[in-house]
């Protein structure tokens, strides 16, 4: 029974994904169809009586094993020898520094606004 539920839930998620890619195609949007599909599902949760519980088995299985789903793609690095170059190493360093900046600024801005909000509230 649980297996049937998992399959049905994943089929429903697929329908949202296909609808998202269809919208991207028709409207020629640069935003990935998967994100459009996610926003559609979010809209359904917000505007109808539907809740994430209805998709729990399928979504839990997919989200809990996400690394399995992109293993085939990351294995594609096997045809990307160019990563092991000076430019590749430089860009890896750049990504690392950029990560520090994103983390530091994002957290700092959030804490600044949280504290300011507290002060206004008294």
């Amino acid at each position: 029974m649980r297996l049937v539920r998992i399959v049905i839930h994943i089929v429903v998620l697929y329908v949202f994904y296909w609808t998202g890619t269809w919208i991207q195609d028709v409207l020629q949007l640069p935003i990935p169809g998967s994100i459009i599909g996610m926003l559609l599902l979010l809209a359904v949760f917000v505007f109808t009586a539907a809740t994430p519980k209805w998709l729990q088995d399928g979504s839990g299985l997919l989200l809990g094993n996400m690394p399995l789903l992109f293993l085939p793609v990351t294995a594609g690095l096997v045809v990307h020898g160019e990563l092991f170059s000076l430019l590749g190493a430089g860009l890896i360093t750049a990504v690392f520094i950029s990560t520090l900046l994103v983390m530091g600024t994002g957290s700092w801005v959030t804490q600044y606004l949280l504290k300011r909000g507290e002060r206004y509230r008294g």
């Binding site: 994943i10 998620l13 697929y14 949202f16 994904y17 998202g20 890619t21 990935p32 169809g33 998967s34 994100i35 599909g37 996610m38 926003l39 599902l41 979010l42 949760f45 994430p52 998709l55 729990q56 399928g58 979504s59 997919l62 989200l63 996400m66 399995l68 789903l69 992109f70 293993l71 085939p72 793609v73």
Partner: peptide, 14 residues
């Protein structure tokens, strides 16, 4: 396996 990535992103809405 890769074809399940699309629905997995959709599932992030949950």
């Amino acid at each position: 396996i890769e074809s399940l990535l699309g629905p997995a992103v959709v599932a992030l809405a949950c």
